[in-house]
Amino acid sequence: MARLILDAITRRFGADQPAVDAVSLDIAPGTFLALLGPSGCGKTTTLRLVAGFETPDSGRILLGDRLLAEGARAVPPEDRNMAMVFQSHALWPHMSVAENVGYPLKVRGLPSAERAARIAHALDTVDLGGFRDRAPAELSGGQRQRVALARCLVTDPDVILFDEPLASLDRHLKASLEDAFRAFHRRTGATIVYVTHDQAEAMALADTVAVMDRGRIAQAGAPESIYRHPQTRAVAALIGQGAILDLPCRFDSSSREIGRDALHAAFLAPAASAGSTVPVLVRPEDVVADPAEGIEFTVSDCVFRGERYGLALVHASDRRVFAWSAVAATIGETVRYSLVRGRLLEG
């Protein structure tokens, strides 16, 4: 197992802003890295650069001490020992399930007895033991993705790449395949790079999340750390829920955490007196009912979320926050809530 290192890689298509702009990542062996971002942020191009389908204009990609790409000079994909699960499954329609899974072994010239054993093992791993002679067209979307996964399994690749594998599936299938991917990672300990635009998927699967924005890595870290300590407005908007408030700048900038009193003071400051403002993230769980000392809000919306209600609260200054509530509220009702914690963001 070897580290996968992206060293300041840049890729531009035409003369526009680069699709991937000086991206650097150091991915330890066995990491499950999710590349998360809105469409067009460069995450798929980054993945294709790692696979070798694209070559960088500048920068380097290394796997351990093996140089995979340096500028336009690059090792072709067929020599990288990687595997990929595509959004479109990319199962070969003219081959059976077993032939699809066994193809990489055939390419490597394994004897047929060993091939059969490995195919059977890989198919059992994804719970498709009885499907070996089916054609891909006879399978459901979820089963096809499992076959694609089994095809990655058979060869012990150094890195497994996932290109939005769940994007075209329904919610129920998504959940069951997420479980399959997690189990797969636990069992194999493979290094995984997983591209998605769905933050819940990234949080549920990855041990490291790299948020991409306009070709750059906006922030990378453990899911919980990104959720708790988002650094920029873009990351805060993409990860989790909450309101981003533009409040007058009165905070001690040595700490990014803002306590209740400072937050209330800024929140209640008249907008007119504001010179410059800074963005502050307030998560719904930090907005708590406080009938005695809370700020007065009007309920502008109340949505049932199953286990609780989501409230949209609007203040007389027209500033809005979101809160959770165990009980329903009436729209137009006046309530008192406290903002117990906020987080200062960059730009």
Partner: peptide, 12 residues
């Protein structure tokens, strides 16, 4: 993607 998948398995 069908060709790309084959490429990654090492097929020339």
């Amino acid at each position: 993607a069908l060709e790309e998948a084959a490429r990654l398995t090492g097929a020339g």
